[in-house]
Design a protein around this nucleic acid. Structure first.
Lengths: 116, 116
DNA sequence: GACATAATTCAATTTTTGTTGAATTATTAA
DNA sequence: TTAATAATTCAACAAAAATTGAATTATGTC
């Protein structure tokens, strides 16, 4: 995998609107949600949501298919796992013991971390 | 509010330069590297690298400390694991079996994923 | 102290993103 | 076939990010 390609995927998650959309779709995997429901859940104007959904689809993190007059969006869980594998590849030069030790320290829920 | 904080972290990984820097530091965890070595490895102009390192440090994904006249940068593995947990939280919420199936088919070392 | 080295900050410019309302396309229902 | 609904595209503007070279700060060496 090319870092230019992967950075585009992280760019898709670099807006709080898109991150919220993606997490909503991850929670609602594998069924996904139609655009109107996403807009309702997250209270984002339709026109702005379209802009962000387009970016997510272009990144590959989200897929879309027509369903009558609705558009159904789904998170691509395999791609999500791929970028996690990319990010963590050869962590600590492949020393799994070192990584596991970090893992034990990481049980901070980012939801509760202070703002910067 | 929380997603604004996490999206800033993904923003830090949304440039291919910064993504390359971060992965280099992940591979070289836990020791890290000094700025000049990063510049040499990745062939990035010092002034531009400083700009990107600053963004990484501000996101919290990278830490820095002075070492004589060198600056040593290190990846924050615990924060990396936290944002992975944030991204994958409640995946396939109603259907954990579905989520386990996705994981089994992926290339992710389970060390880096929260239990499900 | 004077000089070299490591790295950063600053200022200027260019490029890219995000947001909004109005107009448009696609589909279904009356 | 007309109207209603779902969603997108378009155009305009506002805001933020990337890049560069010159100047600056901090540290170590002669």
């Amino acid at each position: 995998m090319e870092s230019k390609y992967v950075s585009k995927i992280f760019e898709a998650l670099s807006s709080d609107v898109r991150l919220d959309v993606f997490r909503l779709l991850v929670r609602n995997a594998p069924a996904g949600l139609v655009a109107g429901d996403i807009a309702k859940f997250l209270d984002v104007p339709a026109t702005n949501l379209s802009f962000h959904l387009k970016a997510l689809v272009q990144s590959g993190l989200v897929t879309v298919e027509r369903e009558g007059r609705f558009m159904r969006y789904k998170a691509s869980i395999p791609l999500m796992l791929d970028i996690i594998a990319y990010l963590t590849a050869e962590c600590c030069s492949g020393n799994p013991e070192c990584c596991r030790k970090f893992r034990a320290e990481s049980h901070v829920d980012p939801t509760f971390l202070p703002e910067r």
